[in-house]
């Protein structure tokens, strides 16, 4: 029997996760194709939950589809769209559908998405939701009622990687206190900064899976620096992207170099390819990571 993500988290392997966005529509063909590009190269696929507050298919439905296709998934769950009843209800549903890994986050505000007038929920914050999941795993719902056959989720949380953001670091410690199993981070470009971040949480014994996003151009790097919270592409990387004739190749090379460095610092990498899942095998090859044989 192949190892689960949970088993692998306990091993010494450098783990690879990637991200799959549910479709805007009812056709799951692209989701299945994206996942197929990276079959056996990644240890689990994060299924996003109305990412950037843009309405898409339910992550529960997409997660189940990917499970049926033989992939391991990490279902993301935000606090933006569901109150405490709906969150607990979806957690039970997810477990019954075979989902074993979840990753919890507050969620981008509705004003950032494609339905900006949506009433945001935020009945719970991510720390509170993580505490409730801990309780559910012990067999009780938030109100203290017994739950039959409680779910045994592997639970993840997210974090930015700027150690100087003291309030965010404080919140990460609160998340860690709830007994999470892994942390997935925002995209890393500045390895020096990431090293400082890792040192600052060296007392937290939770495996960290560092995010990466392959750059497509210098313009994309500048855009992310301006608009995506927690992303900081250093000038030297932007210069490299500016001066190359093949920005896509250079972006993949930069990404592979980052992953090579990450191998020394943390437990894995979370690849957010932004619609380019077919590039992941090449990046992993450049980073000298072979996963296929052992999976």
């Amino acid at each position: 029997m192949s190892l689960t993500f949970k088993d692998k988290l306990k091993s010494k392997d450098f783990l690879i996760t990637s991200e799959i966005s549910p479709p805007k529509g009812t056709d799951l063909k692209e989701v299945i194709e994206d996942a197929e590009h990276i079959r056996e190269l990644v240890d689990a696929l994060n299924v996003t939950d109305n990412q950037r507050a843009v309405m898409r298919m339910s992550p529960l439905a997409v997660s189940r589809t990917l499970l049926d296709a033989g992939h391991e998934v990490i279902m993301q769950l935000t606090c933006r769209d569901r109150n405490r009843l709906a969150l607990q209800s979806d957690l039970l549903g997810a477990y019954a559908m075979g989902i074993r890994n979840i990753c919890v986050m507050t969620g981008d505000h509705t004003t950032k998405g494609d339905h900006p007038k949506t009433k945001p929920v935020y009945d719970l914050d991510s720390v509170q939701l993580l505490s409730i999941i801990k309780k559910i795993k012990k067999g009780y719902d938030l109100a203290g009622n017994r739950i039959d056959n409680p779910p045994d989720f592997l639970v993840g949380a997210v974090s930015n990687i700027d150690q100087s953001k003291s309030a965010q670091m404080m919140k990460l410690r609160k998340k860690a206190k709830t007994g999470i199993d892994f942390i997935q981070t925002q995209a890393v470009y500045d390895i020096g900064k990431f090293e400082v971040f890792m040192e600052s949480i060296s007392d937290i014994e939770v495996p960290v899976i560092a995010g990466v996003i392959p750059l497509k151009s210098a313009k994309m790097a500048r855009f992310m620096n301006r608009n995506i919270p927690g992303i900081n592409v250093p000038d030297d990387i932007i210069d490299t992207m500016e001066n190359t004739e093949k920005p896509l190749d250079e972006g993949m090379s930069v990404c592979a170099q980052t992953i090579t460095e990450l191998k020394k610092l943390c437990r894995g990498t979370h690849m957010m390819p932004i619609g380019k899942h077919n590039n992941i095998p090449k990046i992993l090859e450049m980073a000298d990571i072979r996963k296929k044989d052992q999976c």
Partner: peptide, 20 residues
């Protein structure tokens, strides 16, 4: 805070300014 967060910030702020 537009997300009414009691346990710390959301990570959506850019240079100290609110995501919203």
């Amino acid at each position: 805070c537009p997300k009414r967060l009691l346990n710390g910030p959301c990570g959506g702020a850019v240079e100290g300014k609110c995501e919203v």
